[in-house]
Design a binder for these strands. Structure first.
Lengths: 251, 251
DNA sequence: AGAGTTCTTCCGCTCAGTGGAAGCGCCCTC
DNA sequence: GAGGGCGCTTCCACTGAGCGGAAGAACTCT
């Protein structure tokens, strides 16, 4: 940059983005020093840039003075093309009405599932996923539903890595997982039992448009009520099909 | 900036933010040239900065090559402190369950209402508001509910301006509006009849925490069913009180 | 095929951006 | 209440990153 940058070749923009990137689900509130450390931007520079971002409300400050993502960025984020979410939301609502449980919509991004919408009531079990959140694919219902409809080479690449194991019930053996994915493909839905969180189980159905899984619709409930899952699968599949239809129609 | 800027004193960051600011509810998809024009950044510079933003997925491209807000910004926006929204969502859900209509949560930002959450089903009437959207206060239910609980000087300043008039039913006479606001304060809820959109009417209740309206909860329905509004007001008020309580508890 | 529009590449000039150092303010601990 | 640590803010002299006009490429419409 202009001036005596320690790291020539790094643009101002890249620093601004690095600062924004310092915020993630695990670190939604940071002090200036933390922002500097996490973004790799020198403290002084971070101070100046953060000031400018704050003035624009790209960043905000909590009552304790910590920095967080600002209102303006939230607002901007809402403008992201969300056709899928727009058409899907009423269906999530429908599933919620029929079950009263946590319902969510997820897409694949890279090797993870990205939760794009979530509907939850007062009685539903607390749950790890949140809109904008990410989780690995293999321990989640929506992840399995999505993964099962990816091309072969993708699945092989996914399984070839070291797979995380958030609970003792997580299935990480490539062979067993591959078999399960075939089953998911055959039945049209995926189930999990405490593979992501102890105490919770889930069901999910893919939203298939021209053979491709553009999203997955899932519900999560307490594992005490695991026996109810089969009954809920039909509601899920109907809604997933409805989403697929509306989505294809608006394309 | 470094180099022969036409407009010395303008920081790179301000240009990046101006580019992001070029996107709004009325212009969610833009060509490069439009971005440059709307942001006041020279085309060449916009080209370079947009490229960098795109690589980071702060901006994305639609199938037609137009630019839009990117996935990464949406994700980032979800990290904005949303305690209010988190505690309120189950209550919106409750109201939706009891009514089947569009339910939304709004806060005041400046002289406008900012919609922060929305729940809608398949049967609900299409509606102008959307999460992240803004509307003037006086023609909307949530706006009136919020405005009625602002301090006197604020209301006076609001009414002193030229007020927009989206429909012939919009109330813009300061005297009449002020009287209506007193009524809203007295009854604890606000009603509108086609003041924002022909064919739609609404009811809204403020979320009062220590006498301050931190948000408002509203529903919109077809004006053919306006007679049902009074019945729905109770559900709204209960939910608004529930939100206020949960909100105060987590503070 | 010509005229217009939008996007992309090129390149020499220059000032915006840089970040270490030093100072400030707060909260601990001893 | 002195001392130490930590996080934030201000200062400032040096310099290469950024600038943007011009020219060219790609793509539409006539």
């Amino acid at each position: 940059m202009a001036g005596g940058s320690r790291e020539p070749g790094r643009s101002v923009t890249s620093k601004v983005l690095a600062i924004l990137g310092a915020f993630d689900a695990a670190h939604p509130r940071l002090t200036l020093t933390e922002v500097a450390a996490r973004s790799g931007v020198p403290l002084t520079t971070a101070h100046r840039l953060v000031g400018e971002l704050e003035r624009w409300q790209a960043l905000g400050r909590g009552p304790d003075g910590r920095l967080s993502v600002g209102l303006r960025l939230w607002e901007l984020g809402q403008l992201a093309p969300g056709r899928l979410q727009d058409v899907a939301h009423p269906w999530l609502q429908e599933v919620f009405a029929g079950t009263g449980e946590n319902v969510h919509l997820a897409v694949r991004d890279g090797l993870e599932v990205l939760y794009v919408d979530k509907v939850y009531g007062r009685r539903a079990v607390p749950i790890v996923s949140r809109a904008g959140g990410r989780l690995p694919m293999h321990p989640t219902g929506v992840g399995k539903a999505l993964l099962a409809h990816e091309p072969d080479w993708f699945v092989r690449a996914y399984l070839a890595r070291e797979l995380e194991r958030p609970t003792p019930h997580t299935i990480t053996e490539p062979g067993r997982l591959a078999r399960e994915l075939s089953a998911v493909r055959a039945q049209g839905y995926a189930l999990t039992y405490e593979e992501m969180t102890l105490g919770s189980c889930s069901a999910a159905a893919p939203v298939l448009v021209e053979g491709r899984a553009v999203a997955a619709l899932g519900i999560v409930l307490s594992s005490r009520r695991a026996r109810e899952l089969p009954r809920l699968v039909d509601i899920l599949r109907t809604a997933a099909a409805g989403i697929a239809e509306s989505y294809a129609a608006t394309a």
